[in-house]
Amino acid sequence: MYQEPIFLQPVMQERIWGGQKLHKLFGYDSSYEKTGEAWAISAHTHGPSKILNGPLQGKTLLDAWENYGELFNKLPDSDEAYPLLIKILDANDDLSVQVHPDDTYAREVEHEAYGKTECWYVLDADPGAELILGHHAETKEELHQMIDQGEWDELLKRVPVTKGDFVHVPSGTIHAIGKGIVILETQQSSDITYRVYDYDRVDSNGNKRELHLQKAKEVTTVPHVDNTINPTEEVQEDLRIEKLIVSEYFSVYRWDLQGHVTKLLDKDFLQISVIEGEGTITVGEKEFTLVKGANFILPSGLQKYELEGNVEFIVSHPSTNQIG
């Protein structure tokens, strides 16, 4: 059906901690004063991306997944949900301290398809910016006591970050993106979040946001274990490929193109976001312009394609066992 990339329109999401950087950095239009997230490649029911070109133009990625599974090499009788979700987040203020469940808990308790393991590539960060990643409690009892007593400074582990850093956040990890950070997030396609602490903020109606302390206590990994990231690099023609992570749920890469490369699609499909620069992608006789902020999928069966320009990409695909 598609012998071309499937370009997608991001879905903007208003958040209490959002700002205007998604428009300034990527040109995304939003009617929200506080735009926190662009769901760039999404087949989630809470915000499916719209297809911008080709035979399915005007339909959503969710439509394509459910009705044209061959685009993703999906088994015909599979009832699996689309496995991944790509977001770009603007933390104009601190996000809530939160934690996500694993697949088993999500299915048994929330009756959702997936839990949420995620990873972050830092696209921009103010000087001195920090993440919360993990905690200092050694036992469940200590974790519960420190949460109940509000001992946040003692409990939470803070990590400084700069542009270009990469962070893996498995399910069960207490975390928060700090003020002044813009990230590209690759995650399981899940919208389950348990808030642990929200700085006693109130919304526009003067109400505090809901916390989910009991569920958060149940799913948090204790003790916290730091994840070591060991990226590897290879070069194909004028393309430098940095393999950031290969995990149970996804593989994520940073591609840095300075010239031209011809590649073969050797995965079920690829998700690609342009994070810097501009160039072109050519499939057969068709050439498409690539600009910063573009998001697209290379569908199954596309085979050979060519990239040209000075462009930086974040590329991902699901683990093979995630496709029905």
Rank of each mutant, 00 (worst) to 15 (best):
V11F: 10
S78N: 05
L302A: 02
K217I: 02
L244E: 02
N230H: 14
H46T: 10
E287W: 02
I51G: 06
F166N: 07
E37D: 02
K286G: 01
Q271H: 14
L89V: 04
D148F: 00
P48Y: 13
Q188R: 11
K243T: 15
Q145W: 14
T282A: 10
E237W: 04
E130V: 07
M1G: 06
E14A: 15
M1P: 12
E234R: 15
S273P: 04
V311L: 09
Q214Y: 12
F166V: 02
I272Y: 02
H23D: 12
V311I: 15
V159A: 08
T162K: 09
G128S: 05
R107Q: 14
K157W: 15
D153E: 15
P5Y: 00
F7K: 06
R240C: 14
V196S: 05
L25S: 08
V315C: 06
L270D: 00
L307T: 03
P160Q: 14
L156G: 00
K87P: 02
E185Q: 05
L298Q: 09
D266G: 08
I323H: 03
A176T: 03
Y121S: 11
A40Y: 01
P10D: 14
L155G: 11
K215W: 03
K179F: 01
E130Q: 12
R158L: 11
T193D: 02
V167S: 01
D198Y: 05
G277P: 01
G279T: 04
G324E: 05
D200F: 12
E142Y: 11
P318K: 14
L239F: 09
E142Q: 05
L25C: 13
F166H: 06
I281F: 02
D77L: 07
E110V: 04
I323N: 03
Q149S: 10
K24C: 08
S189W: 08
Q188K: 10
V196F: 02
Y199S: 14
T280D: 00
L71Q: 08
Q271A: 11
K50E: 08
F296K: 07
